[in-house]
């Protein structure tokens, strides 16, 4: 468990926010939506991997 995961997700979040603003200003709303969705998917895969490792650890720890 490392902390850089936290910074990776924060970085993706900031990047997506900036890209969204830039693309919206440039008039390409659909590309902006696509980048937001792409960022969402990337972060979601990371989060789900971590949540599954949490569940496995709790299962082995508490004997569920």
């Amino acid at each position: 468990m490392n902390v850089d995961l936290l910074f990776k997700i924060a970085a993706v979040g900031i990047l997506v926010a900036v890209l969204h603003q830039v693309l919206c200003r440039a008039g390409r709303e659909e590309q902006a939506m696509m980048t937001t969705l792409a960022g969402l998917v990337i972060v979601l895969t990371l989060v789900i991997k971590e949540i599954s490792s949490l569940f496995d650890t709790v299962r082995t720890l508490f004997g569920l």
Binding site: I9, A10, G13, A17, Q21, L46, V47, I51
Partner: peptide, 12 residues
């Protein structure tokens, strides 16, 4: 900017 990412960070 992105409220949903705040939830991800709190989960992680």
């Amino acid at each position: 900017y992105r409220p949903e990412f705040a939830i991800y960070i709190s989960i992680i």
